[in-house]
């Protein structure tokens, strides 16, 4: 990836939460880049730091207790961490926008959905009322909301979950952002609706030509949508690769375990693989490799020292001692 193809690059990002019980390293020294027009998937289980990474990029970490303690987030030649609050405002929702998991809580229930989309347009694009309305209807049509002119005057609770998520996407895309961050955008939806929304995102991405960071726990969604994948665990990147190498040749025991833990829809499954143990508590992390208490292939070195990300084949990184050197 040459430098001009990179839309966003994150370097050594650390986001810690300073709680009464101790320091929670929600995101611990992660680096990655999102190529222009590419979809980067971040996958991991609860508490692995995938959502916190997204919030850090937008500088939406609740402070206190959270704080970005180190790192650079380079976007369009600027370090987002150096920008003033006001400059950041003009980027959020405009150049970088975000879609959340639960559209019901991210939409304000007392305003019509049209008004909320129009507000974004008026704020960032200085459109006057009629123009914003026309543009909002256009966006509603684009995201496939039927009867857009009627639906624009409804309130969030009058819409189904799928339609609400479409409204969120319309809102997020209304300013043609260069980067869209989608945090579990389809987790709250039924499968048939999820398929619609994923297809919509894919089509719109081609049209608007933005990059997407897609955060999910669902490896199926990752396989379906992404170009590159980060597998996160305990705030760290465990494996990083393009989607085909990752699924064809997963290297990290954690990635392998995850893939083997999902039942296959098209095969009789005799017995399902189990990763032993629990998803760890970030307050109380193991020494050495953070995955070693759950790992089948644990060696002495895993307990003593944390591995770095080793590049095994070009572009395929893994944080595991098995692949050292």
């Amino acid at each position: 990836m040459s430098d001009n193809d990179v839309m966003l690059s994150v370097e050594g990002l650390k986001t810690y939460f300073f709680t009464d019980k101790g320091i929670v390293p929600a995101v611990d020294d992660i680096s990655f880049a999102v190529g222009a027009g590419k979809v980067l998937g971040i996958v991991g289980e609860s508490g692995c730091g995938k959502s916190m990474t997204a919030l850090s990029i937008l500088r939406l970490i609740p402070t206190p207790p959270g704080r970005i303690v180190a790192g650079n987030i380079l976007f369009a030649g600027k370090n987002l961490l150096d920008l003033s609050v006001k400059q950041m405002h003009s980027i959020r929702g405009n150049e970088i926008s975000m879609i959340f998991q639960e559209p019901m809580t991210s939409l304000n229930p007392v305003y019509t959905v049209g008004k909320q989309v129009m507000e974004v347009l008026r704020l960032h694009q200085n459109l006057h009322k009629e123009a914003a309305r026309a543009k909002a209807i256009e966006m509603f049509n684009l995201v496939g909301i039927p009867e857009a002119e009627k639906r624009i005057d409804t309130y969030p609770h009058q819409l189904s979950g799928g339609l609400r998520q479409r409204v969120m996407i319309a809102m997020a895309l209304s300013c043609r952002p260069k980067l869209l961050i989608a945090d579990e955008p389809t987790t709250a939806l039924d499968v048939t609706v999820q398929a619609q929304i994923l297809r919509l995102m894919k089509n719109l991405q081609d049209e608007i030509d933005s990059s997407i960071i897609l955060i999910t726990h669902d490896l199926g969604v990752i396989a379906e949508m992404c170009d590159d994948v980060l597998v996160m665990y305990t705030g760290r990147i465990m494996e990083q690769a393009d989607v085909y190498s990752l699924f064809e040749n997963p290297l990290h025991p954690y990635t392998k375990g995850l893939l083997q833990s999902i039942p296959n829809l098209h095969k009789d499954n005799e017995s399902l693989y189990n990763i032993k143990g629990l998803v760890p508590n970030l307050l109380n992390l193991a020494d050495g490799c953070k995955f070693h208490p759950r790992c089948e292939f644990v060696q002495d070195i895993c307990i003593e020292k944390e591995p770095e990300l080793f590049e095994v084949t070009k572009g395929h990184f893994v944080r595991c001692w098995k692949y050292m050197g």
Binding site: V191, D218, L219, A223, Y244, F247
Partner: peptide
Amino acid sequence: LMSAVPLPDPK
């Protein structure tokens, strides 16, 4: 319903 399920294999 079955065809809507995303499969964990990019192939």
